[in-house]
Design a protein around this nucleic acid. Sequence first.
DNA 1: CTGAAAGCGCTAACAC
DNA 2: GTGTTAGCGCTTTCAG
Lengths: 331, 331
Amino acid sequence: MATIYEVAALAGVSPATVSRVVNGQRVSEEKATLVRAAAAELKFTPNRTARTLRRQHSEVIALILPDIENPYFTSMARGVEDIARAAGYSVVLCNTDEDPVREARYLDIAISENMAGVILAPASDHPDLQHLIARRRPIVAVDRGTNFTIDGVMMDNRQGGRSAAQTLVETGYQRIACITGPSGIETAAERSKGWREIVTNAGVFERADDYLRYSTFRVDGGRSAMQELLALDRPPDAIVAANNLMGVGALQVLTESGRTPPAFGVAVVGDLPFTTLPPASVSIVRLPVRQMGITAARMLLERIDGDIQPARTVVLRNEVVPAESAPSLTA
Amino acid sequence: MATIYEVAALAGVSPATVSRVVNGQRVSEEKATLVRAAAAELKFTPNRTARTLRRQHSEVIALILPDIENPYFTSMARGVEDIARAAGYSVVLCNTDEDPVREARYLDIAISENMAGVILAPASDHPDLQHLIARRRPIVAVDRGTNFTIDGVMMDNRQGGRSAAQTLVETGYQRIACITGPSGIETAAERSKGWREIVTNAGVFERADDYLRYSTFRVDGGRSAMQELLALDRPPDAIVAANNLMGVGALQVLTESGRTPPAFGVAVVGDLPFTTLPPASVSIVRLPVRQMGITAARMLLERIDGDIQPARTVVLRNEVVPAESAPSLTA
DNA sequence: CTGAAAGCGCTAACAC
DNA sequence: GTGTTAGCGCTTTCAG
């Protein structure tokens, strides 16, 4: 494992000169050529650990996510990666499984590996950010807010819930239920609030909360909530699913019980991953999640480059794609 | 950012003693207590970069994947993570996007960050492993083989292709096509070979290769291949999709053209992620991908611990879940 | 433009 | 059981 000392010896220059060549600083063309030849011959790869120890930060960014299996987050990861890579940074993905303990561990690793910064989709609203902040490591929160005043990029979740419910109302459904995520998670709470605004204000039906279910943000959660709702005395005739995976779960249960859309109305906040549904049978509130990753990465890079303006929060707008075919409800 | 020197000073011991306490070596209970108190007070977090530089390897494992958005790979990642974490290692995910250049870059990073080892799902059959091997860093290949003699864990892909085709033959379909991945990728080639064995030997129909399409391992690939096949003079009446995403693409096209299973037979090698299909309308060859991750992680950890036996390859068996309802083909 | 030398924080001999 | 010390490989003043 060649070091700059060996390269220097072979090239007949000092280690400092090798370092300068490697880092693109001004060196006479003559010596630079010598160094490059020697480096190639020895298959020299700079040791980033040493560089990081010396410079006090690495060129890697941690992207800490609650659920690596959810395409929502992997799509975000692509956005982050594209920007980071263009700026010479590598991205490593860390999966917390919605567990604050695992999250705290990855946060610690980010510090102790001297990573350049972290982008965090928090597992709770009070992540363990003390250490990171005390050490002035750049952080940006994505998707969900925190109790700290740090940079963030979010969706307009309330609006997402409203839009989803609205298309269902306009189509003429009567009892529009809502399945949302854990009540402790901001995105879940906001989306269901948006839904409630619409169904309440539109006077579509009373006692909206009988038709609201909190569950996990996963397929299983959507399934069990949907099953509960269908077992009601007066079951709903439409549903707002607060995220993609719950939408999948709800659709599975509906399909299994023979109630496919548009006979039963379905609107999902978030894109349906890998759907094989007939086109436009389900209303989708598109969440610009890749853009969220891009924006977060840009903000983080600015901080890494020394930007010290006050914390900012960016809210991204979403776009509704309503189901095409209205059901024949009045038939 | 406290160092062991500051902790040592506060505790009134030497830096070496602090290091010993941190690393769980034998130290008198008395001094250990002092050290722990001082460490807590200073919020000491050991600097892994320095440790890595000194020890010549870190406690992180790189998992390098061709497509982070494919649930097949994220599911594998969960398996790796579970094992690695239990052994005190962290896993970082790297996305190559099937690009050998990006793959080579991550491989280099694994070296220059002194990572403990790498698990690689290669983007081609000749990944750039020279450096890693020369430096004797543990590697295990997953999912796809390489030209190098290194540890590996694979699926029985040929068998997977056979099983998928077989269930379709048994159900009575006449012209069973196959959509597979890039011809340069082992898993793609093997699965289509399995399909060919069955359709040829069973004498189901001649000129099988007219019904074989190579494409990308993604949804788009499945879509365009399916479209081509349907445009044939004598279109197929059933399809084997060589991976999950292509299966989704094929199903999308079939749905859009009104040919839903089981009227049109579909068998997929791999699980359908987040499907909302009617249960058991499609035959699935289950690939034990999480188990693959687990096995790979175990092998890697053995190597990291100094195991030097010759390279091993493990082949995992898969399981067929046939579609339940046979179509009324003779009607 | 180039070289010498110090030191990032930690661990592992080696003494005591 | 504990302290002293010498690096791990690199970058970066500081001289020249």
